[in-house]
Amino acid sequence: MLDEKEIIEGCCRHDRRAQKALYERYASILLGVCIRYSGRRDEAEDILQDALIKVYFNIKYFAGKGSFINWMKKIMVNTAITHYHRNLKHHYHQDIDDIHEMDIEGSEYDSADFTREELFNIIKELPQGYRMVFNLYAVEGYKHKEISDLLNIDVNTSKSQYSRARSLIRKKLDSLKKIAEKVDEQD
């Protein structure tokens, strides 16, 4: 098994073995990033493909500064944004007025209470625009200003979409928690 340094060097030389090693080692975690943005597996794999091609052909520009996996994740995010722009017109559009929001301050969330899959299912069901903003802001840690530049939207749109996304998520987390408690009571 090649280590990270060998993989990078190998990929710079377009070494097949290194390319495959990179894929085997990182594809699953990178697909995890893509699928968060897309919500659909087939589209996420398209994104992964495009992004990995970028990784392979630009790996020589990875200067070794910072973490390699984060560099690749960033490329995944950028590619996902490109896809989002490209496919914007195809996506089902949900009107903001149709979303009933309820922002109740309340419970705290413990990471032990939820599984990754539960959280992913929540993310998956978010409207496309909300999902982009939420991922960028909450998970990737971008600022609203940066998000507005990336997605070509107003800063305030980013902020309001984020807060709506958050309240939707909170609602879903609470309902998940309630279900879990009910199951506990039955046991």
């Binding site: 495959k20 894929y23 594809a27 597996r41 794999e45 909450a138």
Partner: peptide
């Protein structure tokens, strides 16, 4: 909420379908 998602998604893995590597 942010912490929750950030910590859990740090290692969120999804296995690609077979044959994806061939395409790439």
């Amino acid at each position: 909420i942010e912490d929750l998602f950030r910590t859990l998604f740090e290692q969120f893995k999804v296995n690609p379908t077979q044959g994806l590597w061939k395409q790439i």
